[in-house]
Structures are given as C-alpha cells and as structure tokens.
C-alpha cells in the first residue's frame, strides 16, 4: 500500500537540546505557539522518541549528551529524519572546539537538513521542517548505525535489538 503521502501529513516532532544556549529552543517553541502554528501541518510536539518522525536537535553535542542523543535517535522508529537547528547543531557554532563539545550533530547521527542561524528564526525552522518532510516521504532506509559511538545493533533473524546501540562513554583520546 502506498501510504507514503500520508506520512508527510503527520510528522510528529521530538525536540532535543544537546547542549545549546536555549536560544534555538525558544524559537522552536515559538513555532508551536499560535503565531506560527505548525500544527496546521499536522505536527505535534510529542516529546517522545518512540512516536516521533522528526528529531529537531539544537546546540552543539556536549560530551555529557552525546550518548543520550544516540540513544534517543535509536529509539525512534524508521522512517525518521533529523533536522539540525541552528549554527551549533550544524557545526558546533560559537562553541566549536571547546573542551566540552564534540561539534555538530552529524558527528554522531546522520543529519538530513541543516538550518542555519544563531538563533535560527521560526520561519527558517518551518522551512527546514518542510524540507525534511520531503525527505521523510522518500525515506525508508534501515536503521543507521551511530557514526562514532558505534556498536552495531544485534540482528536476530529480521529483528534488531536496539537496546545497546549507544555504547557507554569510554575516555576518547584527545585530538
């Protein structure tokens, strides 16, 4: 059955702050409020990876949050897209190169759409999400492995055990 067109009409959002300054988060929340009203696209902020299609990540990935990020990403069922909101999430932004930061989100999970701006504007976010919808519509790819913190998911017959995707923090050698 071709249900893909409907998928585009009901993207549920999970919003995760990987260590940003909260600027972008406030903009995201503004999108949900009456002025920008992204519920008209059928979006709901679920706050729950298991029922979400779009992961909106803000902020650079700090060392404390990288495992959580991968874990949350692993808990989202496919198809799913990741939108990196703001300069931090895209590249590390003003925090790039700091002792506690790892840089952009794409170091750990595959990112589909990058939204620029420090704080990114609601219009940009909406634009990014709408672009993400197009990707979501095509996307039906398998579970992606984490790029750096990777342990391959254990596959028994056709099922994946995602319980141990994000490995625990081992001191990474400093570059």
């Amino acid at each position: 059955m071709k249900l893909a067109t409907y998928r585009k009409k009901s993207p549920w959002i999970l919003h995760y702050n990987a260590g940003g300054c909260n600027g972008c988060d406030i903009e995201i929340l503004a999108c949900l409020a009456p002025k920008y009203d992204i519920e008209r696209f059928g979006m709901i902020n679920t706050g729950n990876p298991k029922q979400s299609d779009i992961l909106l990540v803000t902020g650079p990935v700090t060392k404390r949050s990288r495992e959580r990020l991968v874990e949350i990403y692993a808990q989202m069922p496919e198809p799913k897209v990741v939108v990196a909101c703001g300069a931090c999430a895209s590249t590390g932004g003003v925090f790039r190169g700091m002792y506690n930061c790892e840089g952009g989100v794409d170091q750990f999970i595959p990112v589909d759409v990058y939204v620029c701006g420090c704080g990114t504007r609601p219009e940009q976010i909406i634009d990014g999400v709408v672009q993400a919808l197009a990707i979501l519509e095509q996307k039906n790819k398998d579970m992606e492995a984490s790029v750096r913190l990777n342990t391959q998911p254990i596959a028994e017959d056709e099922q994946l055990n995602r319980r141990h995707v994000a490995a625990s923090i081992t001191p990474t050698p400093t570059v």
């Binding site: 249900l3 409907y6 009409k9 009203d37 069922p77 579970m143």
Partner: peptide, 28 residues
C-alpha cells in the same frame, strides 16, 4: 481547540493521517 486559540489548526481528517502514518512505521 485551534480556533479557540485563534489558530488555523490541522485538517479535520488529521487523526486519520496520523493513523495511516503510524501503520507504516518500523515495528518496535
């Protein structure tokens, strides 16, 4: 509810779109 908040809100059939979408996700 959206109109009460002076929003446009989702289409009336939105729950059914959600329904179809959920059916299509990878099982977990």
């Amino acid at each position: 509810r959206a109109r009460m908040q002076r929003r446009i809100g989702p289409p009336v059939l939105q729950p059914f779109y959600d329904f179809l979408k959920l059916a299509d996700k990878r099982r977990m």
